[in-house]
């Protein structure tokens, strides 16, 4: 009981400590450090969206960068046409959500790999579209904007103001996702992920939930695009690059599937790992990046969010197996389907 009390106390402490740390960060750390923290928030929001469709609902999507890009281009368009910031924000969130909804209407009828293939089409279409309308998108060399400067009454540096904007918006949408993903929706999404037939039998429409999850994911992508433009202030068709789509998916898996915290860890990994590797050897980044990802997945297959399990394993009195086995809801579809098949295939002696 004392142990439990101690951890409860710690839990009460670390969230406020985290909040205080973020709040004072601009005054304590160098602007480069704050920029990296804010970048983590940007990609964590994108990965969180991806987690909702891929992690929670089990539909592999490679379309997330398309929505980040669409959100970013919407911001560039809005800023260049003098829209108020709030209108820009709403447009950057809703336009990708609308596109995501329209794409999901037919795509959600597909399952598994077919859905993934359809989702690939979106970033692929993004590049020629961006090039075809240079008046709106700035064409091959992209669109550079200057906005989101600190209001004078705040007496803040622009960098610090942008840091707060990004952190606050990201936090709000993380909390929203956390609320959404701890209740009926999480259960419904999970059952759709595990078995669509069972879901349908339970009265949970797989089709509707897939459309819903994809629409939410698209909206999160658009919001990440808004935050991206707040920090980077530049967007070019490079954002639709296929490798970025794959890297986001990898970061989500390595951060932790079907996990809010895992999304944050995935964002941290996506932003910080190249920085770390660059300090080791800037000319071998791809090789080292691949090697590190491989090592992480071998050591903690469940993603960074399960790193606690690793420490448990080294404890003197490890808890019994069933105690720290992942709950059913956290297993990936492939693992669970194998588990379901396995007993049937074992011949009786």
């Amino acid at each position: 009981m004392t142990k439990l009390a101690r951890f409860r106390k710690l839990k009460r402490l670390y969230i406020p400590a985290f909040v205080v740390l973020l709040a004072i960060s601009p005054f304590v750390f160098a602007s480069y450090v704050n920029f990296q923290i804010a970048m983590i928030a940007v990609f964590a929001v994108a990965i969180l969206g991806l987690n909702i469709i891929t992690g929670y609902t089990g539909q592999v999507s490679l379309a997330q960068t398309a929505f980040v890009g669409l959100g970013a281009y919407t911001v560039a368009f809005g800023v260049n046409h003098g829209w108020p910031v709030i209108v820009t924000f709403v447009a950057a969130a809703l336009l990708p959500a609308l596109v995501g909804f329209l794409v999901a209407l037919p795509a959600a009828r597909l399952r598994g790999h077919s859905f993934a293939i359809v989702s690939i089409a979106l970033p692929i279409v993004g590049i020629p579209l961006a090039l075809r309308f240079p008046d709106i998108t700035g064409g091959a060399f992209g669109s550079s904007i200057s906005w989101m400067n600190a209001p004078t009454w705040m007496h803040l540096a622009n960098d610090d103001f942008r840091f707060y904007v990004v952190i606050i918006i990201a936090t709000v949408f993380f909390l929203l996702a956390k609320n959404l993903m701890t209740g009926r929706f999480q259960r419904n999404f999970a059952v759709v992920r595990e078995d669509e037939l069972v879901a349908a039998a339970m009265g949970v429409s797989p089709y509707r939930h897939k459309v819903l999850a994809f629409t939410i994911a698209s909206m999160y992508g658009g919001i990440a695009g808004f935050l991206y433009m707040t920090l980077v202030q530049f967007v070019s068709p490079a954002i639709f690059g296929f490798s970025l789509a794959l890297q986001l998916l990898a970061a989500m898996i390595i951060g932790g599937r079907a996990s809010i915290l895992g999304s944050l860890l995935g964002g941290a990994l996506y932003v910080l790992l190249p920085v770390l590797i660059g300090q080791v050897d800037a000319t071998q980044t791809t090789l080292l990046y691949g090697a590190v990802l491989l090592v992480i997945l071998l050591v903690v297959p469940g993603g960074l969010v399960r790193i606690g399990d690793l420490f448990n394993r080294f404890r003197r009195n490890p808890p019994k197996d069933q105690e720290w086995a992942a709950p059913v809801i956290d297993t990936s579809p492939s693992e669970s389907s194998q588990a379901a098949v396995a007993p049937l295939s074992v011949p009786k002696p």
Partner: peptide, 25 residues
């Protein structure tokens, strides 16, 4: 209890990662 232990470990691990990546700068 288990969950909290995990969360605290992660919080530590993450701070370590951030510190390692940005410490030099």
């Amino acid at each position: 209890l288990k969950k909290n232990k995990g969360m605290v470990t992660i919080a530590f691990a993450m701070s370590a990662l951030v510190a390692a990546a940005l410490g030099g700068c």
